[in-house]
Measured scan of single mutants.
Amino acid sequence: VIAMPSVRKYAREKGVDIRLVQGTGKNGRVLKEDIDAFLAGGA
Results as ranks from 00 to 15, higher is better:
Val1Lys: 08
Val1Ala: 09
Val1Met: 09
Val1Asn: 08
Val1Leu: 10
Ile2Glu: 09
Ile2Arg: 05
Ile2His: 09
Ile2Gly: 07
Ala3His: 07
Ala3Tyr: 04
Ala3Phe: 04
Met4Trp: 15
Met4Phe: 15
Met4Gln: 14
Met4Gly: 15
Pro5Asn: 13
Pro5Val: 11
Pro5Lys: 15
Pro5Phe: 06
Pro5Ile: 13
Ser6Glu: 13
Ser6Pro: 07
Val7His: 02
Val7Gln: 03
Val7Ile: 08
Arg8Ser: 07
Arg8Lys: 12
Arg8Glu: 12
Arg8Trp: 15
Lys9Ser: 09
Lys9Arg: 13
Lys9Leu: 11
Lys9His: 10
Lys9Gly: 06
Lys9Ala: 12
Tyr10Lys: 02
Tyr10Phe: 04
Ala11Phe: 01
Ala11Asn: 00
Ala11Arg: 00
Ala11Lys: 00
Arg12Val: 15
Arg12Met: 15
Glu13Leu: 14
Glu13Asp: 13
Glu13His: 09
Glu13Ser: 13
Glu13Ile: 11
Glu13Trp: 09
Glu13Ala: 12
Lys14Arg: 13
Lys14Pro: 00
Lys14Thr: 07
Gly15Gln: 08
Gly15Ile: 04
Val16Glu: 00
Val16Ala: 04
Asp17Val: 04
Ile18Gln: 01
Arg19Gly: 09
Arg19Cys: 05
Arg19Ser: 11
Leu20Phe: 11
Leu20His: 11
Val21Ile: 12
Val21Gln: 01
Val21Ser: 01
Val21Arg: 00
Val21Asn: 00
Gln22Glu: 11
Gln22Phe: 11
Gly23Trp: 02
Gly23Val: 03
Gly23Ala: 08
Thr24Glu: 03
Thr24His: 06
Thr24Asn: 06
Thr24Gly: 05
Thr24Ala: 03
Gly25Gln: 02
Gly25Met: 03
Lys26Ser: 10
Lys26Gln: 11
Asn27Met: 09
Gly28Leu: 05
Gly28Glu: 05
Arg29Asp: 07
Arg29Ser: 12
Val30Tyr: 02
Val30Leu: 05
Leu31Lys: 09
Leu31Glu: 09
Leu31Met: 11
Leu31Gln: 08
Leu31Thr: 13
Lys32Arg: 12
Lys32His: 09
Lys32Phe: 10
Asp34Phe: 00
Asp34Lys: 00
Asp34Pro: 00
Asp34Val: 00
Asp34Gly: 01
Ile35Trp: 00
Ile35Pro: 00
Asp36Asn: 07
Asp36Met: 06
Asp36Arg: 05
Asp36Val: 06
Asp36Lys: 05
Ala37Phe: 11
Phe38Met: 07
Leu39Asn: 05
Leu39Cys: 04
Leu39Thr: 06
Leu39His: 06
Ala40Pro: 05
Gly41Tyr: 12
Gly41Pro: 09
Gly41Leu: 14
Gly41Lys: 09
Gly41Thr: 14
Gly41Ala: 14
Gly42Lys: 12
Gly42Ile: 14
Ala43Tyr: 14
Ala43Asp: 13
Ala43Cys: 07
Ala43Glu: 13
Ala43Ser: 13
Ala43Leu: 14
